[in-house]
Design a protein around this nucleic acid. Structure first.
Length: 468
RNA sequence: GUCCCCAUCGUCUAGUGGUUAGGACACCGCCCUUUCACGGCGGUAACCGGGGUUCGAGUCCCCGUGGGGACGCCA
């Protein structure tokens, strides 16, 4: 069975880069009816935090990347790691080293000065007199020969063992380190595919050597390229949104973000929008691009718009709920939210924007948009609005058609074009210069509210005209 | 510095020896229009450089150059 995993270290939020490798791993598992595991790599006791664990899980949930096992915490598996390390020690595949950090740094300094790659010099490799107290345990990496990674996206990568050094498996306090725990876990969890960022390519040959030393079956490796910020540098906090949840706050639909992330560095013919099912069905590791790609918010926004335009109104309403709540907009007193969504979905780039665009259906406004009022409330306005108001009062069946016919009637009676009547009416009823077509807008605002606002606008415009 | 990875429009990409180098985002123009949008139509814009291989290279090889990554008792 196919088994993949996503193994973040809990030192921060779930980032865009992490979200994408999680997505790829998840897709691969789902596509092959396999298992997707969430593993928390929390062996750096200093830096990891409970909040980060929660943030990562929140992010995974929001994105809908469900896992079949986990979260598994490496800190719960220390006994197992210790046993493996002991086994390596017993078999002479690992050794104790008591070199001090100062010593190590001096060696590296020297190597750098000699224009060499800094690495451990193997001083303790053949010693047998190192005391347990205060010493680390190192892996005896092979000294010669090549390690070949048969990478599913990059192709074969060859690294000579001379480039590698004896990595530390356990700190003096016995806490195991990353490369050891990853290998033990991937071995124990029978990982078939390791899909991760290509910043890990350098770790892979070391891990392969460890797998080999443990007599374990090698998983397949797939290193996906990094995501860069628009300055060409690796994506980081400086490039705007930190965690994935920031995108929720900014009004993105999780599926849209997933869609964007999928297409960033992967493609299928000329398709841009993929449903969840299509993603699972069509994703191929071999189609993942080999080069790093730049994150582009404008395209993400475009993808988001596509989802806002096409998702079922009910589903959109669910996603919108958080934003309504966040913007303190109570929609219990007003038109059905799905109707409002239908009227506004072509006009919003984000859910955040959508939420703020629809306030006037549910709440009265106290002020007109300054520019809109200035531009559209003229000396003739009170008369026009009063004419509309009188006719609207007579309408019993409040619907788009009846509203439209009133507007037409006013235009004819006053011998004015739609361009003279529509804009002031819009400002009067919505307080803004933008809304869907007037028949739809007034219908949603409702008769009672519309009349009240028209009365207020007549008064406002009259007073304003009287001033000058 | 050493090792590894990479290189097609500004950005995401298609392209696997013969194409007018295609699509998408963005940008610009036109149309639609009571506003804001949507939409429709059209346009600008790319094979990093140099050597090979070949009848023929964006595509294969080599060398540069440029970018990214790694070089931790971080993961």
């Amino acid at each position: 069975m196919t088994v993949t995993r996503f193994p973040p270290s809990p030192t921060g939020d779930l980032h865009i880069g992490g979200a994408r490798t999680a997505l790829y791993s998840w897709l691969y598992a789902r596509q092959n009816d396999g298992k997707f595991i969430l593993r928390i790599e929390d062996t750096d006791l200093e830096r990891n935090s409970k909040q980060s664990v929660d943030a990562i899980i929140d992010g995974m949930n929001w994105l809908g990347l469900d896992y079949d096992e986990g979260p598994i915490f490496q800190t719960d598996r220390f006994d197992r790691y210790k046993a493996v390390i002991q086994q390596l020690l017993d078999e002479g595949k690992a050794y104790r080293c008591d070199c001090t950090t100062e010593e190590l740094e001096a060696v590296r300094e020297q190597q750098r000065a000699n224009k060499e790659k800094p690495k451990y010099n193997g001083k303790c490799r053949e010693r047998h007199d190192v005391s347990v107290e205060g010493s680390v345990i190192r892996f005896k990496n092979p000294l010669e020969g090549d390690v070949v990674i048969h990478d599913r996206v990059k192709g074969d990568i060859v690294i000579n063992n001379r480039e590698l050094d004896d990595l530390i498996l356990a700190r003096p306090n016995g806490v195991p380190t990353y490369n050891l725990t990853v290998v033990v876990d991937d071995m124990d969890m029978q990982m078939t595919h390791v899909i991760r960022g290509d910043d890990h390519i350098n770790n892979t040959p070391r891990q392969i050597n460890l797998f080999l030393a443990l007599g374990a079956k090698l998983p397949e490796f797939a290193h996906v390229p990094m995501i860069l910020g628009d300055d060409g540098k690796r994506l980081s906090k400086r490039h705007g949104a930190v965690g994935v949840m920031q995108y929720r706050d900014d009004g993105f639909i999780p599926q849209a973000l997933l869609n964007y992330l999928l297409r960033l560095g992967w493609s299928h013919e000329e398709q841009e929008i993929f449903s969840r099912e299509e993603m699972i069905d069509l994703f191929k590791l071999e189609n993942v691009n080999v080069a790093a790609s730049t994150f582009n918010t404008k395209k993400l926004i475009w993808v988001n718009e596509q989802y806002i335009k096409t998702l079922a109104a009910e589903e959109l309403a669910e996603h919108l709920e958080w934003h309504l709540d966040n913007q303190k907009l109570d929609i219990s007193n007003g038109p059905a939210i799905t109707d409002v969504i239908e009227a506004h979905r072509d006009r919003a780039k984000t859910l955040k924007e959508l939420a703020s665009n629809i306030r006037y259906y549910y709440e009265d406004f106290s002020e007109y948009d300054e520019k809109a009022a200035k531009k559209n409330f003229k000396t003739a306005t009170p008369g026009i609005l009063q004419n509309l108001l009188d006719k609207f009062k007579q309408v019993n069946d409040w619907n788009p058609e009846s509203i439209e016919s009133v507007i037409q009637a006013t235009c004819e009676e006053l011998e004015l074009g739609m361009g003279k009547v529509g804009p002031p009416l819009r400002v009067a009823v919505t307080g803004t210069a933008m809304s869907p077509s007037l028949d739809v807008t007034l219908n949603l605002v409702g008769k009672e509210r519309s009349l009240k606002r028209l009365e207020k606008a007549v008064a406002f415009a009259t007073a304003k005209y009287a001033e000058s």
